[in-house]
Amino acid sequence: MVNKSGLHRHEGLLIVTILILGVIFSINSGDFLTFGNLYDLVNNYAMLLILACGLFIVLISGGIDISFPAMTIIAQYVMVTALLKFGGNFLVAFLIAGGVGTVLGLVNALLVNRLKVPSIIVTISTLNIFYGLLLYFSKGVWLYKYPDWFEGGLTLFTFTAADGYDYGLNLPIMTLLVVLIVTGLLMKRSSIGRKIYAMGGNREAASRLGFGIFKLQLFVYGFMGLLSGVAGVVQSYTVMTVAPDSLLGYELTVLAAVVLGGTSIVGGRGTLLGTSLGVILLAMLQNGLNLMGISSYWHTVITGLVIVVSISSTAWSQRGKSEILS
């Protein structure tokens, strides 16, 4: 059973921390709280939050997926190549990338279920397999060319702000909103969301209740793959480049955000709000440190520390709960 009061306290602590950091960074940098910086922050970290939504569901189910950076790049590479050869539009781009990502996610689900080994072992293996295949077929070549309509972009409700720049509801922001709404409804309002929580809390009990574990795993890892493809489109839109090795190590950043948000690495515990707050906190940390002129190497150190602290606090919380119950 989910300890909702504990989750609410954790989310409250995250909100307070975000507010404190906001004050510190705004004092040390006049650019931090400008509309332009906050707008860029949302755009630049939209992909991270999209991937975090997928990993959040995988962790809730009691599994883990480390292979999503490779799935994202493969989906992105196939999408751009297909669009240049056959043409299309943004809907076609999402269908191609999402389809490729879903297939790779289903491969993960099949291996996790059939091999009966921890999902972290399986997905570390597929991470290397996927990357190896990508590098073999792509020869490590970067893609810079996009269709004209893709480079032209898609922005609704455009307006000119006081700083003279144009802003609006662009593709990354619109995509992020859709992903958040769909993920929230899935986990809070649907029966499959409740089954995923139950499977993560106690897989044997869920199986005895008649839940199809394999079907749930197919859904969970397939959804992770789908969002990996969606994230690939968003990143393409943002950077207009496909680099086969651009997301190496990105799984640690996404994992840090999700566990920082209070999602248990052993399953059955966590909220989408907490995950979103975890992403916001990491985004603010990296952006604020950058504006203050602190070396990017320290960003990696801080990300590692966040993972250690978050996992440790989750473990202590679970151990304390177990001691009370015993």
Rank of each mutant, 00 (worst) to 15 (best):
M1L: 10
H8G: 15
G12D: 10
I15R: 04
I15Q: 01
I15F: 03
T17A: 15
L19T: 07
I20Y: 01
I20C: 05
L21M: 10
G22K: 00
G22A: 05
V23F: 04
V23R: 04
S29R: 08
T34A: 02
D40V: 13
L41Q: 05
L41K: 00
L41Y: 01
N43C: 04
L55S: 02
I57Q: 15
S61C: 11
P69M: 01
I74H: 05
A75I: 04
A75Y: 06
M79I: 01
M79E: 02
F86S: 13
G88T: 07
N89S: 11
A93K: 05
F94D: 07
F94M: 10
I96Y: 11
G98Y: 10
G101C: 08
T102W: 10
T102G: 06
T102L: 12
L106D: 02
V112W: 02
N113A: 13
R114F: 11
R114H: 08
V117Q: 10
V117L: 14
I121S: 05
I121W: 01
T123D: 00
Y131M: 13
L133T: 09
W142N: 13
W149G: 14
F150H: 09
G153H: 08
G153L: 08
L154Y: 09
T155H: 09
T155C: 10
L156P: 08
T158G: 13
T158K: 15
G164R: 15
Y165C: 11
Y167T: 07
Y167K: 08
G168L: 01
N170R: 05
P172D: 01
L176V: 00
V182M: 05
L185T: 12
G201C: 11
R203V: 15
A205T: 10
A206E: 11
F211A: 14
Q217T: 15
L218W: 09
G222R: 02
M224Y: 07
G225N: 02
L227R: 07
L227I: 03
L227D: 05
G229E: 00
V230G: 06
V233S: 03
V233M: 05
V233P: 06
Q235W: 15
Y237F: 07
Y237Q: 03
M240A: 03
T241F: 00
S246P: 08
L248C: 05
T253P: 09
V254E: 13
A256L: 13
A256E: 12
A257T: 13
A257E: 00
V258L: 04
V259W: 06
G262C: 08
S264L: 12
I265D: 00
G268C: 05
R269F: 12
S276K: 09
G278R: 07
L282D: 06
L282R: 02
L285K: 06
L289Q: 12
M292S: 14
M292E: 11
W298M: 13
H299P: 00
V301C: 07
V301F: 12
I302C: 10
L305W: 10
V306M: 06
V309K: 08
A315C: 11
A315H: 11
G320T: 02
G320P: 01
S322K: 15
I324D: 13
L325Q: 15
